[in-house]
């Protein structure tokens, strides 16, 4: 009963906050609702007994990705009323794109066919939750059957990271930077000069 109650609470808040992500006037509120949605999705995973996925969802999405979203969105200085002026003009084309996407998804799902051996794959026993923790189970399958796909995903992320660095990194001339080696190597002769000032003359 508690599980059912929790499910309905999490699910209601999840759907509600997902709707609010789209309909919030302020993008910062949108991101905060997105975070709430992630959080409730993690709650649903816990109810399913998938605690590893739940924790990873919170760590990766809420703890890192959403912080970056929030970071960027908060720094943007947008006039929202200005931005919403063209809504009427763009509504038909937006609806059209939405409709095309919907049709495509219906076509894909409608044309879905299972491979022949699927019945045996589905019947293959998953380890019971109380014997093998799901961290263990995921590890065993991810690093054996799916090792190449796993490595490929890692490689794609690496390429994306290097790409982002290459695209944004620029050498800026004239920026003063601390060089600890230079500071340590500096001797008195380079830093200090004693000038004998004659009275009434000063330093020219």
């Amino acid at each position: 009963m508690i599980a059912a109650l929790c499910f309905y609470i999490f699910a209601t808040i999840l759907v509600g906050s997902a709707v609010m992500v789209v309909f919030s006037k302020n993008p910062v509120h949108s991101v905060l609702f997105l975070i709430l949605a992630f959080f409730n999705a993690a709650g649903l995973f816990v109810l399913l007994g998938a605690e590893f996925v739940a924790m990873i969802l919170v760590i990766v999405y809420v703890g890192a990705v959403a912080v970056m979203f929030l970071f960027v969105v908060m720094m943007l200085d947008i006039n929202f009323t200005e931005l919403r002026k063209g809504v009427q003009d763009y509504l038909p084309i937006g609806l059209l794109i939405g409709f095309i996407l919907l049709v495509e998804m219906v076509v894909i799902v409608g044309g879905w066919s299972m491979t022949d051996g699927i019945a045996t794959t589905i019947m293959a026993p998953t380890p019971p939750i109380n014997e093998v923790t799901n961290t263990d189970a995921i590890g065993r399958i991810l690093y054996t059957d799916y090792i190449y796909l796993f490595q490929l995903a890692g490689l794609i992320l690496l390429v994306a990271m290097i790409g982002a660095i290459v695209l944004t990194h620029r050498k800026r001339p004239g920026v003063k930077k601390q060089n600890i080696g230079d500071q340590v190597r500096r001797r008195r002769a380079q830093a200090f000069e004693a000038v004998d000032v004659k009275p009434g003359e000063g330093i020219v």
Partner: peptide
Amino acid sequence: DLNVGILYLFAVSSLAVYGIIIAGW
């Protein structure tokens, strides 16, 4: 006594930033 106790702790410590970032904004 969570199976993923340490991940939970890690998750919670990574959430601590929200109080501050929301306060600042």
